[in-house]
Amino acid sequence: MTTQALPTLFVPHGAGPCFFMDWEPADTWARMERWLRSVPELVGARPKAVLVVSGHWEAPELTLNAQEQPPLLYDYSGFPPHTYQLRYPAPGSSELAARVQALLQASGQGAELDHDRGLDHGVFIPLKLIYPNADVPVVQLSLKRDLDPAYHLAAGRALTSLRREGVLIVGTGMSYHNMR
């Protein structure tokens, strides 16, 4: 058990694969990219695993991807062909997925395991910058489709002990998705 709790972060994931494209001007996403690359220093300790909630996955119940080698879900369109070849071979963690499921169920919330869905771009795009070696296990947690704030806040409270167990909890998103 870790004695010091890791922080909980909300990080931008950019627009689609924006950090891996050419832009005019060339530094369009440079500031955000630099900040994402600084996250390990901000966190201060290397996490045992990362639990990520991306706004790009909503399910009837909170759901976790539980593969040992999660595939990528290229859930963007209209980008250059090379952006569909991006790789992020981080391991998953069925152990962490089961732990999260147990914590959520103990708090009275439903939680399902999914063995098929890949990591969406809200997960793999920022993590390619934060942990570029893809050597930290990653588990993605969906939102519950009804988006009830009280329910999601209770889920967050149920998971807070993970922070002392070496799990970095990260939410990703953007306040807009219009790249024009």
Rank of each mutant, 00 (worst) to 15 (best):
R117D: 05
A134E: 12
A26M: 02
W57G: 11
K128S: 15
H13S: 01
A49W: 10
G16Y: 11
L113T: 01
P70A: 15
L127Q: 07
T160P: 00
V170P: 03
V139R: 12
L62V: 06
V123K: 00
L62T: 12
L64V: 01
R117L: 09
S54T: 14
T63G: 00
V53T: 14
L9F: 11
G122D: 02
V123T: 12
A102Q: 15
L72F: 09
S142H: 03
M1K: 04
H56S: 01
L51E: 06
L127M: 15
I169H: 01
A26P: 09
Y131G: 05
V50L: 04
V136D: 02
D148T: 11
I169W: 01
L36D: 07
D22R: 13
Q101G: 01
A97G: 03
R31C: 08
P47K: 08
S93R: 12
G14A: 09
A15P: 00
G156W: 11
S54I: 07
E68S: 13
I130P: 05
V50T: 08
S77I: 12
M21C: 10
R31Q: 06
Q67D: 05
L86Q: 04
M179E: 08
E165F: 02
F79M: 04
I130W: 03
P60M: 02
D146Y: 01
L51K: 01
V43K: 11
Y74Q: 10
M32L: 12
A154L: 03
I125H: 02
L36M: 09
E24Q: 14
L127R: 03
V43F: 11
K144Q: 15
L51R: 06
F79Y: 15
N178Y: 15
Q69N: 10
R157F: 09
I130Q: 07
I130S: 02
S161K: 10
A90R: 10
A97L: 06
H115M: 00
C18I: 13
E58A: 13
P12G: 13
A59V: 00
T28W: 08
Y88Q: 03
D146H: 07
V53M: 15
R34I: 01
M32A: 15
A154D: 02
A59Q: 14
A98M: 14
R164I: 00
H56G: 07
